[in-house]
Design a protein around this nucleic acid. Structure first.
Lengths: 174, 174
DNA sequence: TTGTACTTTCAATCATTTTTGAAAAATAGA
DNA sequence: TCTATTTTTCAAAAATGATTGAAAGTACAA
């Protein structure tokens, strides 16, 4: 496969993955483009590569900077800004985890907690069903949250080794 | 908090979580409603509870059944169908993992693999950057995939214990 | 058969999200 | 300061995705 074709395929795939996971398709595409670019790119470059408007490019670059995935760079003697992505994928993954935990997991945990203390007889069938579900959800979402916190605070190779060791030691569900 | 208020709050929260993760808001709300209902519900019940049309209810129930999260039930002497959700949250989580791995993770892994073999001099800066990124992504996405496969094939309490033990043994990134 | 009680489908409509592009604001250099 | 260049903003337009509701389909009982 030619480089250009491969790049394009990658950018499209990343865009569609993003949009399946609640991330703006264009934002994911801009990120993909910067991830695989050897050099930093100007807004013009990005507009041309992805065929998007100036406003759109600007807006999504802003969002990526906000997520901590992209940074600006100034070149000597040049006025325009150049953008580049963090290339260490482990760091990228950690950054994404940090943001989504903050934006989505935390609020849900908050609601699960708030909602657990419902008034009335805990033996009543409807109250029982409600509390049961909410508590179990809290337990599992809470575990996921702690696991992600752990991922975020770990050094890559250590984390990967630990996980892969655990996964491989599958003493088939005792 | 009153049960009705708590239920509503939970349904709204679950809907918004869903839509942040690429799942139709109404589908998530129908699922939430069924999760916290002691009894199975008819399409009418669901339409009334969530204020949605018959077509919408039908369509999202179909999707939930497709994801393996909801099942139909027939009551003796009654013609209409009643729907209920799998209440074991661990099973629900596993089911969601199974589907998303199949629908989204696998296709991405495929693209990452396809795209790795790009023609040309591997020392060329642009090819180097591309291959580097694609390989690292493959490594990390691959690990996530194996981890999720592991989660899906594990019995709940064993998995939770294993994970929590690992998380707590944090020998702070050696 | 026919009528009834439901479920399913799908074109049209509505709502939300994304994108555009031109104007305004910012910035750097002369 | 003023001008040239670049970035930012944001209302309007476009695109996408969700929802409706009425018609078609299905299954059952009489």
């Amino acid at each position: 496969m030619q480089l250009d074709e491969a790049k394009d395929k990658f950018i499209q795939a990343w865009g569609s993955l993003g949009s399946n996971w609640g991330i703006n398709r264009t934002m994911a595409q801009v990120h993909a483009l910067l991830l695989i670019s050897a050099e930093s790119l100007s807004a013009e470059d990005i507009m041309a590569a992805l065929n998007i408007s100036r406003g759109n490019a600007n807006m999504n670059l802003r969002a990526l900077i906000d997520w901590g995935l992209v940074k600006k760079e100034y070149r000597a003697g040049e006025r325009r800004e150049y953008f580049f992505a963090e290339k260490d994928i482990w760091q990228v993954a950690q950054q994404v985890i940090v943001e989504r935990r903050k934006r989505e997991l935390k609020p849900v945990l908050k609601v699960l907690e708030d909602v657990r203390n419902v008034e009335g007889d805990p033996e009543q069938a409807d109250i029982k069903a409600f509390v049961h579900t909410v508590e179990h959800l809290g337990q599992i979402v809470g575990m996921a949250d702690r696991f992600l916190e752990f991922a975020v605070s770990s050094e890559k190779s250590w984390f990967m080794e630990t996980i892969l060791r655990t996964v491989n030691s599958r003493v088939q569900t005792p």
